[in-house]
């Protein structure tokens, strides 16, 4: 444990510090938006958005190399793809007569396939694994700045829309009858979800980022009687998972993304098993 703290201040281990900052910065966004996502039962939509991010990353890497667009970073590609997927999924689930889950499933895999094809066609070796499962070595100071900016946007909008978002999540029909443009709020929530996903893609990767949405919020829901409590507890659990997971992964020489997710999953399982035992003993 002591070596972990030493490593955090070691100038040669700056990536570890970046990863910790990124995780701690992202935790409130995950706590707030994750609570809405869990309460609204749209984890599946969040999963689809996350996987589409690979399409954006792949396209950005390809264009960067092929057309020498230096400004087109994978992070920017991820943001564009995530927002695009969120709007597409939102409009389809609001408007389409097609079976919504089939369409979402299609977007999910097509986004991912696009990314893999672009990455394969980009000269030089790019390991898709680091995008799929995260790689803290890739976090740059600039990424950290982007994360901070997105974080402020997501937390600000998430908290500003708090009362109306709860009304829409709790009883959409009633909210609509009160003159709230519920479709707009659904799209806003999907876009905030998309930006939140981008925050942590670097650290835990697109496959596991959903875990940081659902696990802390679902764990927190067992201790909360109000939405804001759930957000607060989910934020704290997210911070503990990131800090603890990074420390464990450093100490035990494990990949950091999976370790963070395992820790979040451990908290969740402990709580539901503990609760089950308590009910049985009663």
């Amino acid at each position: 444990m002591l070596t972990y703290f030493n490593a955090l201040t070691d100038p040669n281990m700056v990536f570890l510090r970046y990863a910790l900052f990124a995780g701690l910065l992202a935790a409130p966004a995950f706590g707030i938006i994750g609570t809405y996502v869990v309460a609204r039962r749209m984890t599946y939509l969040a999963g689809a958005i996350a996987h589409c991010v690979l399409g954006g990353i792949g396209a950005a890497l390809y264009c960067q190399d092929r057309y020498e667009l230096v400004w087109l970073t994978p992070m920017l590609g991820a943001i564009v793809a995530a927002i695009g997927a969120a709007l597409l999924i939102g409009l389809i689930s609001l408007r389409s007569r097609e079976r919504v889950d089939s369409v979402i499933g299609a977007i999910w895999v097509l986004g991912m396939a696009t990314g893999i094809i672009f990455i394969a066609k980009t000269p030089g070796y790019i390991d898709p694994m680091s995008y799929l499962f995260g790689n803290i070595l890739m976090i740059t100071g600039r990424d950290l700045l982007t994360i901070a900016v997105l974080d402020v946007i997501v937390i600000g909008l998430g908290l500003l829309s708090y009362n109306r978002m709860i009304a829409v999540c709790f009883d959409e029909e009633f909210a609509r009858l009160r003159g709230i443009r519920t479709e707009l709020y659904s799209l806003l929530l999907l876009c905030l979800t998309a930006l939140t996903i981008v925050l942590m893609v670097r650290v835990v990767g697109i496959v596991m980022v959903i875990a940081l949405f659902t696990l802390p919020a679902a764990t927190a829901s067992h201790f909360s009687t109000r939405i804001w409590q759930m957000m607060l507890f989910a934020t704290l659990l997210g911070m503990i998972s990131v800090a603890g997971g990074l420390s464990l992964s450093y100490g035990l020489d494990l990949p950091s993304g999976p370790t963070i997710v395992m820790l979040a999953g451990f908290f969740y399982l402990t709580v539901i098993i503990g609760k089950g035992l308590k009910n049985r003993l009663r």
Binding site: A39, I166, A167, S221, I227
Partner: peptide, 16 residues
């Protein structure tokens, strides 16, 4: 499992 208080629910009548 949606964590809201009674007051939260009644206030939704004012959400517009």
């Amino acid at each position: 499992s949606f964590p809201v208080s009674v007051m939260d629910v009644v206030l939704m009548g004012r959400a517009g």
